[in-house]
Design a protein around this nucleic acid. Structure first.
Length: 271
DNA sequence: AGTGGCTCCTGAGCGC
DNA sequence: TGCGCTCAGGAGCCAC
């Protein structure tokens, strides 16, 4: 599923091609996923793309006339550049046409969303306004991290997954970060020592950066803007490996359900 | 106010 | 071979 590193990969791929392109129209087979409505997007026709930026797992495409197109891939979304005349891709739900190419939004589960809003209210409408810290910002240091989790209650994993704390972490990188840090996902955050919390901070940042370096984790659905797989799945220690031996100690990895998500950890390495 | 659980959705994988 | 069941889960929403 696309998390911060996957979305970052797509945005970096798209940026050089998309900036300066002209929006020509949108077509969809899932009307409920295009907001406020397909018809509403006609007001953006013939407008030029000024910039594209990631925020958490959201993609924001800034257009002329203070309009913003926002996309969220949710669980199974892909965003792939194609020529106008190329056939629809597998599970293609929505196509966003620009003058020189078309962006195909493929999404098995139809959870993905595309919005068009004015810059003055896009953050509120899309939920971006509720996002917490951006973990790749230069200002995101341990002091910031510590402050976020101070006075918070609940399991480490649950808090990492809440987008209002830190934006962009999903199930894969939450499990991996917990493994790096040697912390059990179900550990209560208030019981962590300062040293452990610092280790968790470093682990979160390095798990995300490793994902970006490897152009994302392609477990089942993810592909970059050119339709190519990432390679980070080859470097995962725990996610998706329940029942297999721990790569560090050989112990059988444990799989549980936590915060409603499949969760894998090593009972020996993660105290 | 905060939280747990339900909901959206469909393909893959499995047992029989 | 094919049917039906279970699982995967990001995030909004609602009941308590």
């Amino acid at each position: 599923m696309p998390e911060l590193p996957e979305v970052e990969t797509i945005v970096c791929d798209l940026k050089p091609v998309l900036v300066g392109a002209v929006f020509c129209g949108i077509k969809t087979e899932v009307r409920a996923c295009v907001l406020p409505s397909v018809e509403d997007f006609s007001k953006a026709e013939n407008l030029k793309v000024l910039d594209i930026k990631r925020r958490g797992k959201f993609i924001n495409i800034f257009l002329e006339k203070d309009l913003v197109m926002t996309l969220h891939l949710r669980m199974s979304g892909r965003l792939i550049m194609q020529g106008h005349d190329e056939a629809a891709l597998r599970f293609e739900r929505t196509r966003i046409d620009f003058d020189k190419f078309s962006l195909r939004f493929c999404d098995v589960r139809k959870f993905g969303r595309v919005w068009l809003n004015h810059v003055s209210d896009y953050e509120k409408v899309t939920g971006i306004a509720r996002l917490g810290a951006e973990p790749l910002d230069p200002g995101f240091d341990f002091q910031v991290f510590e402050k976020i989790f101070m006075k918070k209650k609940g399991s480490v994993k649950k808090l990492l997954l809440e987008q209002s704390n830190i934006a962009g972490i999903g199930n894969i990188y939450a499990d991996e970060a917990c493994f790096y840090a040697g912390i059990r996902p179900e550990a209560e955050i208030e019981n962590l020592s300062g040293k452990k919390l610092e280790k968790l901070f470093e682990s979160v940042v390095s798990a995300l950066n490793q994902g970006i370096r490897n152009r994302g984790t392609s477990i089942s659905d993810f592909a970059d803007a050119y339709g190519k797989m990432g390679s980070n799945q080859e470097l995962l220690y725990v996610y998706g490996r329940g029942g297999n031996p721990c790569m560090d100690c050989g112990e059988k990895l444990k799989k549980i359900k936590l915060a409603g998500r499949g969760t894998v950890y090593c009972e020996k390495c993660q105290a």
